[in-house]
Every structure is written in C-alpha cells, then in structure tokens.
Design a binder for these strands. Structure first.
Length: 530
DNA sequence: GTAGGGTTACAG
DNA sequence: CTGTAACCCTAC
C-alpha cells in the first residue's frame, strides 16, 4: 500500500476509539516511514489518552509528554501552558504518592523527589514553568516540614493530574485539526448535501468541526462559524502537498469537485483509487467495532446533519454496500481528488536513482575516454544528495565543473575523483553529517513498524531550574547531637570490634545508631579521642 | 568501606 | 568571632 495512504488511514484510525490490538495490527501491517512527526504525535497523544482514561497516572506519562515536547521543539514549537501544567501535575502525583505523613519515614518519597524532579523535571527546560518551580519548593519542603507534608497529603494530586492532562489533550487535538480522511469526507458531505438539496453546494460542511474528537451532533450554526477554520486546515494540508486540489475546490463551490470527477477519463478513475479501495477493505476487515451512530449514505437530507465524517469515509470505502447514484458520483469525486493528490505528492526516489545512474554512466564514459592518471582530490568531492536535476542544478553543476577544471585541468579528473571517493552516490559518505530521528516507530529493517521508544539522551539544554534543584535538594542533614547512649554504644563497639570497623559497629547497634552512618561513627570517634 | 581534610551549624 | 561538633567530599 502507498505510504501516504497508509499515513492517512493510520492517522484517522488513531483518532478513533478502536481496540488497541487493532491499532497495533494496523501499525505492523502498513508501510510507514519515519518522517511524519504529526503521525508520531498522534500516536503519543493516543497513548496518553489511553493511560488517563484508565486512571494510569505514572512516570510513563512524563516520558510521553517529554517525547512530544521534543517533537514540538524540533519543529520550533514551544510547549503550551496546558502541556506544562499537565506535566507538572503528573510529576507532583508521581511524587506525592510516596509521601508519608511521618517525615522520618519518607525514604521512598525522597527517592521519588530525586528521580522525578531532580533527574527529570528540572532537566526539561521546555516544560519548566513558574508553577513547576513553585511546586518543587513545596515538594522539597515536605521532606523535612511536616506542615508542608500535610498540605501535600490533603491534595488530590491524582485527580488534578488527570484533569490537567485531559485539558491538555483536548487542546492538542483541537490544534491538530481533523485528519486528512475526515477532511476528504467532509468535502464529500458538502457534495452530497448539495445533491440532495438539488441546488448549489455551498461551503457549509457536514460533520463535526473537529471530527476526530467532538460529537457529531454539532449545530448547523456552529458549523457555519467554523467553516473558515476548516479551510485553514485544508490550506495547511495543501502546503504539505497533500490536498492542493481539494483546497482549490473548497474556495469555490462543491460542483467543481463533481466537475473534475466527471472530466477525468474513466480508466484513470478506475485505476488510481485501487490502493484506497484495498486499504479500506483491509480496514473494514480489521474494524470489528460497530458504531451505533453510523449511518449509510442513503440517509435522508435531514439525517445528513447527524452523519459524522467517519460514516462518510466508510461509505467512500465500501462502494458495493451503498450503490445509489449519488454515492457513486461522490465516490468518483473522491477517487479523482485522490488521484490528483497522488500526482501532487511525487516520490523523489525514482528521479534520484535515475540521476545517480546517469552520473555513474557519465563517470564510466569519462573513465574510458580519459587516459589521465587517477588522482584522489578529497577537496573536490561532491556530496549533493541525489535528486532530479533542475535548470539551477545544471547551472550550479557547470560552475562547479568550471572551478574543478581550474584546479585540475579537465573534466575527466572530476569524474575520476568522484569515482574514487565513493563507488556510487548511494554509498555512505564518510565525510557527511547525518541527523536522524533514531527513536522511530518503524525503524526496523524493511520498514517493519514497532512501538515507540523513549528518546535517546536529549541535547544538553541547560535548565534554569537545575542549579536551583542541585543546591536545594542535596542539602545537609539536620544537625543532630550525639546522645550519651550513642556515645556509650560507640565506646563499647570500639572496645569490642576495634577502631576502624565502623560498619560492623553500626550494624551491631543499629537500634541505637538510628540515623547515623558509619562515617558518622568514625567522625564521632575522632572527636571523642581528640 | 575507611581515612582524612574540608565545610557548615551552632553555642558561648 | 571563635571553637567545636556534626556532616560532607573524595582519594585510596
């Protein structure tokens, strides 16, 4: 199946309340590449939503939020306030759950503070906020202050974390907009609406304004108001090379879509959408969950208001089930727009391979025609990634050639140089620097997808709270005077085991030396014998 | 784990 | 401010 189509399907499925096993099955069967942060983010958000809905607030949620923050960071987007708040609330809950009202029994709590706040929250600059700094002060204070301890214990941190994560999720789903398939379905809804009303098809869309997350029962007025927002989503898609044609249709009226469908020769319509049909059948086969609200395309015009975009996608992908003339026309329209989209998203690999082949054959020709000795000139290596040649490329190539000739004397040398540094353009270039996202959801050989992993160590972004944390959390123990009982036990211990066996003495009188260490014993003996 | 030097808190 | 006890850091 085409990778782009796989992405559309997966993105759509990830937004649905489908059994996790089905999602995993789809993940392992679709050909996906590691270049779509939106898809990765959708996957991560779904995971978070799953955990929160199961009341599973844990440090794993912090992992997921950190990965999303990293993805956003790479795209130049900083964490939203709701994300920071959610992250902070989860961190608080993951710590406070270990808190004991007796501050002297808070060993586990101390470990949690260290693990969650010192080694994690403080180091993620992108998720730091004034609130998290404030919370950290309170969290730390509970280590020694029973009042602060009591205050934290009275808080319902679990509920707060759950609530704030949900708020964050809602905001994130909203900002991501509908999935591509839902957009397409929405357009189909417009067309159907137009057909049923027997007149012009306006810009008003059918379905939820945020089809992936919100109820389909959105009032017509609301939808009108949000039409402009949807157009923005489409425009965004078109920039990515996905929906250029559909975008154009949306700006005009829906009849254009039908017009395009009609104008496309039948063989083209039949040929191109095959991947969509086959993939949709696969999905249908794997989708065992029937949604009660789903209706067919035979629904009346009034019923269309309630029809959500999922239904439309199903209709689109099951042509044999609802073969009314209207539906067939919509299917044709969808197919044609799909074909146009496929045309817009051109795979660069064939061009690249062809370019590489051309270069290699040129080099081979030069080798045969030139009697010049082979000279390795690393300074003249070309490491331009293979891609289709443009006029500019040709110009640049000519310039490079000229400068190479200036240095080497002839074009043949250049060819030989290229040949001697790398056998082919597809070979790894030892001098080139590559930057890859190694935490791929599908970076197994052969593109076999696998579950997401935690990110590798992040770049060292100094955190403004780190210094604070280091100086605050590792604080001196509260100074505690030695009791006469402890001094007696120490003297007895030294008499019995000898000076220097501090560990042994400590364990022998563990009940007396409650909060002392072997080093304390050694220091105390030093003081006593001075 | 131990030894010894360094640092900090506190009483006078 | 000073001396001392308690605690910390680090080399071995």
């Amino acid at each position: 199946m085409d990778e782009e189509i796989s992405k559309w399907i997966l993105e759509f499925l990830l937004r649905q309340p489908i059994d996790e096993r089905i999602i995993n099955g789809v993940l392992s069967s679709l050909p996906l590449k590691d270049d779509d942060n939106r898809l990765k983010k959708t996957l991560l958000l779904r995971k978070i939503e799953f955990d929160v809905s199961n009341a599973a607030i844990s440090e794993k949620l912090l992992d997921l939020l950190e990965i999303i923050e990293e993805l956003d960071h790479r795209e130049g987007k900083s964490a939203s306030d709701s994300m920071k708040a959610a992250y902070c609330a989860v961190a608080v809950d993951c710590t406070v759950r270990f808190l004991d009202e007796n501050v002297e029994r808070n060993g586990k709590y101390f470990e949690a503070v260290k693990r969650v706040w010192r080694e994690r929250v403080c180091k993620i600059e992108g998720l730091a906020s004034d609130e998290s700094k404030q919370k950290m002060v309170e969290i730390e204070a509970a280590l020694w202050d029973s009042n602060a301890c009591g205050k934290l214990l009275r808080m319902n941190t679990r509920s707060e974390a759950s609530k704030l994560v949900r708020v964050y999720l809602a905001e994130e789903w909203r900002s991501m907009g509908p999935t591509f398939l839902e957009l397409v379905a929405e357009k189909a809804g417009n067309v159907l609406e137009g057909l049923r009303s027997g007149g012009g098809v306006g810009g008003e869309a059918v379905g939820s304004a945020n089809p992936g997350r919100e109820s389909a029962a959105v009032g017509a007025e609301t939808r009108k108001g949000q039409a402009a927002v949807r157009r923005k989503h489409i425009a965004m898609k078109s920039k990515r090379g996905r929906g250029a044609k559909i975008s154009a249709v949306d700006e005009g009226n829906g009849d254009e879509l039908m017009g395009k469908a009609d104008s496309i020769p039948a063989p083209e319509v039949d040929r191109v959408p095959a991947p969509i049909e086959s993939s949709s059948l696969e999905l249908q086969a794997s989708k065992k969950v029937d949604r009660p609200g789903a209706q067919t395309a035979q629904t009346s015009s009034k019923g269309m208001d309630d029809m959500n975009s999922k239904t439309l996608v199903e209709n689109q992908t099951c042509p044999k089930m609802h073969a009314t003339p209207e539906v067939e026309r919509v299917q044709e329209a969808l197919k044609s727009s799909s074909m146009e989209l496929q045309a817009a998203v051109r795979d660069p690999l064939p061009d690249a391979l062809q370019t590489a082949q051309t270069l290699c054959s040129t080099v081979a020709t030069n080798n045969r025609s030139s009697k010049s000795p082979v000279v390795n000139q690393p300074g003249l290596e070309t490491h331009t990634p293979p891609r289709a040649c443009t006029d500019n490329d040709k110009e640049n190539a000519e310039k490079k050639e000229n400068s190479a000739q200036d240095l080497q004397g002839n074009e043949a040398h250049r060819g030989m140089t290229l040949r001697n540094t790398r056998r082919t353009l597809m070979e790894p270039d030892g001098t080139a620097q590559t930057f890859q996202w190694s935490e791929s959801i599908d970076d197994l050989p052969g593109g076999t997808p696998k579950r997401p992993r935690l990110p590798s160590p992040k770049e060292d972004r100094p955190s403004p709270v780190k210094y604070y944390a280091d100086t605050k959390i590792i604080r001196r123990r509260v100074r505690k005077k030695w009791t006469p009982e402890e001094e007696d036990a120490l003297r007895t211990g030294v008499q019995k085991f000898g000076k220097g066996n501090w560990k042994l003495i400590l364990h022998s009188y563990r009940e007396i030396f409650r909060e002392r260490t072997d080093v304390d014993l050694k220091d105390k003996w030093r003081n006593m014998t001075r």
